[in-house]
Simulated scan of single mutants.
Amino acid sequence: ARQMKAERERRAVITEADGEKQAAIARAEGAKQSAILEAEGRKEAAFRDAEAREREAEAEARATAMVSEAIARGDVNAINYFVAQKYVEAFAELARSPQQKTVIVPAEMGALVGTIAGVGELVGLARAQQGSPRPTSPPPAAPSAATPVAPRRPRGGVPVTE
């Protein structure tokens, strides 16, 4: 009877050890699979981030090329647009700065208003070139002394300065 009891205990210990071994293997396989899936996820995210940066760079390059072409043609509105864009970007960066407690706004806002009017004119010209109807807009604000007067270009005509 003692021999049979010892044999049963031995089998129970072996079975229990085998079960623990199988559980450890299953846990290790699960951890391995989890690590693989995490790495694949990070790889996919990095790939998509790089693709997004690439598309953004391409769009920026196209926009810069269009503005450069307009500047090369002597279009003052394009120059105003480019300057206004950089001005707004710099101002936004100043506002985001964690050390910045005060933002100094120039008292002469007429130049900015004139630039914005120039941007509106540039958009209107772009729409006219694409054949879409130009929306009616209020007349542009009177330019200040610091604002350059942008020449208007009638269709196929010579620039006219008002």
Rank of each mutant, 00 (worst) to 15 (best):
R2I: 13
R2C: 12
Q3V: 15
M4H: 14
K5R: 15
A6Y: 08
V13A: 13
E16V: 12
A17V: 12
D18M: 09
K21Y: 03
K21G: 07
Q22K: 11
Q22A: 14
I25F: 11
A26D: 11
A28E: 13
A28Y: 03
E29L: 11
E29F: 06
E29R: 10
G30F: 10
S34K: 04
I36D: 03
L37Y: 05
R42M: 12
R42E: 15
E44T: 06
F47K: 13
R48S: 04
D49G: 05
R53Q: 12
R53H: 11
E54M: 15
E56R: 15
A57S: 11
A59L: 11
E60Q: 12
E60Y: 07
R62K: 15
R62D: 12
R62M: 05
R62C: 08
A63M: 14
T64I: 11
S68W: 06
S68G: 13
E69A: 04
E69P: 00
A70R: 15
R73N: 03
G74Q: 05
D75T: 07
D75C: 08
D75S: 12
I79D: 03
Y81F: 08
Y81I: 00
Y81S: 04
V83L: 14
Y87F: 10
F91N: 01
F91G: 02
E93Q: 04
L94C: 02
L94W: 03
R96G: 02
S97W: 00
Q99A: 10
K101F: 02
I104R: 13
V105S: 02
P106I: 01
L112F: 04
V113G: 00
G114K: 01
G114C: 02
T115Q: 13
I116E: 00
G118D: 07
V119F: 06
G120V: 11
G120I: 08
L122T: 00
L125Y: 13
A126V: 10
A126W: 05
A126Q: 07
A126I: 12
Q129G: 10
G131F: 04
S132I: 06
P133T: 07
P133K: 06
P135G: 04
S137K: 06
S137P: 02
P140G: 07
A141L: 11
A142E: 01
A145S: 09
P148K: 14
V149F: 04
A150V: 15
R152M: 12
R152K: 12
R153E: 08
P154V: 01
R155P: 05
